[in-house]
Amino acid sequence: MPATTRAYAFNSVSPREKVLRYALLLVVLAITVGPFLWQLSTSLKGAGEDIYTSTPSFLPAEPTLDNYVRVSETVPIWTFAGNSLFVAAFVVIGNAVGATLAGFALARLRFRGGKFIFALIIATLILPGEVTIIAQYITIREMGLADTLVGVALPGTIGMLNILLMWAAFRAIPQELDDAAKVDGANVWQRLIHVGLPNVRGMLSVITIFAFIGAWDDFLWPLIVLTDPSNYTLTVGLQYLNGAFSANPRVIAAGTMIAFIPIVIVFAVLQRFFFRGVEEGAIKG
């Protein structure tokens, strides 16, 4: 039957399409991974190899793991990574909860002031914040949070952008699902848990990634807030590899690669959830 073959073709991929898809994937891959490869190869190059040449070689001639060893000797990687992880976890949980609740309320509930709050969120998103960093620091300091990891995490704990993304995801849920739940007498909380959440898991994983990377990669803000080196986050701590009078680009690259690993893990784990929106959610039935 034509209909079933079409449907079959839709779910799987014909050999010809497969070749085409892989060809395209490889083209994009070639465009995107250059910096990553360069960094990886630099971090594996031996001390006798030239790093900066007019024709960069991507294969180390004397591959070595020494640079990684030197990073771990120079910098208390585990302490710094632990601090970064604390900040990232704090920010991720804050956004997952705070942005979800607010996104749901703004997208799905009608209440006085809702539109006003939404407009303010958009407005703060477009007003450049470049000149406010010192004022931000003073706020944190007045809260008694200078030189603490909570102080580093706090301003990013509920990101306005993430609220907007969750708002868009909640808006995309078909109205009839919500209506059905209302008919069944579900209250706001039940509608959020049983109708909302199953349908926004994709976006939830996206804001988790954004929040994680934002917290993990931030440099200037933790530098300003933190004073005691034992509180340093990884990005700040890795600056020790870049000291006065000498900086070995191989070791710096190794440090960057180490900082990169958790991001790759978080991404690889979460990316499978991108697609588990409606297709496995309540709409299926």
Binding site: L101, A105, I117, T139
Partner: peptide, 27 residues
């Protein structure tokens, strides 16, 4: 009728606190 009037406010409250302290105040 089912929706208690304060329910939405409870949900947006944390976001509004952050909005005011870390976004509007610096603005």
């Amino acid at each position: 009728r089912q929706q208690r009037w304060f329910a939405p406010l409870l949900l947006v409250a944390p976001a509004v606190v952050w909005l005011v302290v870390f976004n509007i105040w610096p603005s």
